[in-house]
Computed example of a mutant assay.
Amino acid sequence: MNKSVAVVSDADKQVGFDKNDVRLSRRQLRRLYEGLAEGILFMAACASIAVTFGILAILLYESLAFFQHVSLTDFLTDTLWTPLFADAHFGILPLVAGTVVTSGVGLLVAIPLGTVAAVYLSEFAPAPLREFIKPILELLGAVPTVVYGYFALLVVTPGLQVILPDLPGFNMLGPGLVIGIMIMPFVISLSEDAMRAVPMALRESSYALGATRLQTALKVVGPAATSGIVAAYILAISRAIGETMVVAIAAGQNPILTWNPMEPAATITAYIVQVALGDLPHGSIGYQSIFAAGLVLCLMTLAFNVFGHLLRKRFREVY
C-alpha cells in the first residue's frame, strides 16, 4: 500500500515537473517574441532617424557647394531670385515671402474653422453624427494635391475674380484658401482627439459648478487639451509650408518679393519643382540652388516643430 502511494506520489511529482517545464518554455517563448518585436520596432525607429539624417546630410553637402559660389549675406538679403538668368541673383527672400503668404492664408482658414469644428464634434455633436462626419473629413487628406491645385486654378480663382475683378489668374489668395481646406482635416482630427482624451471628470465638475456646455468646452476642455491642439496646429503649419503642387499650379512661378496675397509669386517648393523638371546639369550652380532652398525650408519646418514641442511641454506641465 505504501509502495503504491509512493508510486503515485512520484508520478504526481513528475506531472508537476512537466507542467512547470511547459510554463517555463511558454514564458521563454513569450519573452523571445517580445524581444523580437522590440528589435523590429527599434530597427524601424533607427531607420526613420537614419533617413532623416541622410536627408539633412545631402542638403548640407550640396548647400555647402552652393555657398562656395554665393555668399550667405547675398543669399539672405538680396531681394532678387533669378538663378536661371544670365545675370543670376540668389536672394531667397522672394521665395520665403511667397511661402509665408500662401501658408498664412491657408492657416487663417484652417485653424479657426478647424478648431470650431473640433469643438463641435467633441462636445456637441451626437455620436452617430460624429462617426459619420470624421471619416468624410479625413477623406480630404486622401485627395491628390494636384487635384487641389487645378481646383484652385479652375474653380477657386475664377470664383474670386467675380468678387475681385482685378485679381490675376495666378495669385497667392486662391491657392492659400485651397491649402486651408486641404490641411483642415489635420486640425479637426487631432484637436478633436485631444479634446476627447480630456477626462470626463473635468467636464462633470464644471457642470456641477453651474457651467454651460459652451463654457465647459472653452474654459475647461480647451485649456486641458492645449497640448494636443498645439500639436495639431504645428502639424498643419508644417504641412502648409511644405505644400508643392497647389502653389506650383495656381500661384505662378514668378519669384517676386511681395506680401500681397492677390499677386502672383513663387514658393520654395514651387521653385524646386521648376528646376527639378528642367534640364540643368548636375553640379551646376542652378542645380545646387534647389538644395540651398530645400535647406531653408527644412530649417523653417524644424523651427516650427521645436517651437511646438516647447509649447506642448509647457502646457503639459501646467495642465
Results as ranks from 00 to 15, higher is better:
K13V: 11
G16R: 10
R23L: 12
R23V: 08
L29D: 05
G35T: 10
E38P: 00
F42S: 15
I49S: 11
T52G: 15
F53R: 04
L56V: 15
L59Q: 14
S71F: 04
L72P: 02
T79K: 02
L80Y: 11
W81R: 05
A88R: 14
L95A: 10
V96R: 01
G98N: 05
V105T: 05
L113V: 11
G114P: 00
T115F: 08
T115Q: 08
E123W: 13
A127L: 14
V143F: 04
Y150C: 01
A152V: 13
L153R: 00
V162Q: 06
N171F: 07
G174Y: 02
G176W: 06
V178L: 01
V178Q: 02
D193R: 04
V198M: 07
V198D: 13
P199E: 12
T216E: 14
A217M: 13
L218K: 15
V220G: 04
A225F: 02
S227Q: 05
A232F: 07
A236S: 13
S238C: 11
E243I: 00
E243P: 00
V246M: 06
I249P: 06
I249H: 02
A250Y: 02
L257D: 01
L257G: 04
L257R: 08
N260G: 01
I268P: 00
Q274L: 11
G283F: 05
I285V: 03
L295R: 14
V296E: 06
C298E: 10
C298L: 15
C298D: 06
V306M: 12
H309E: 12
F315H: 03
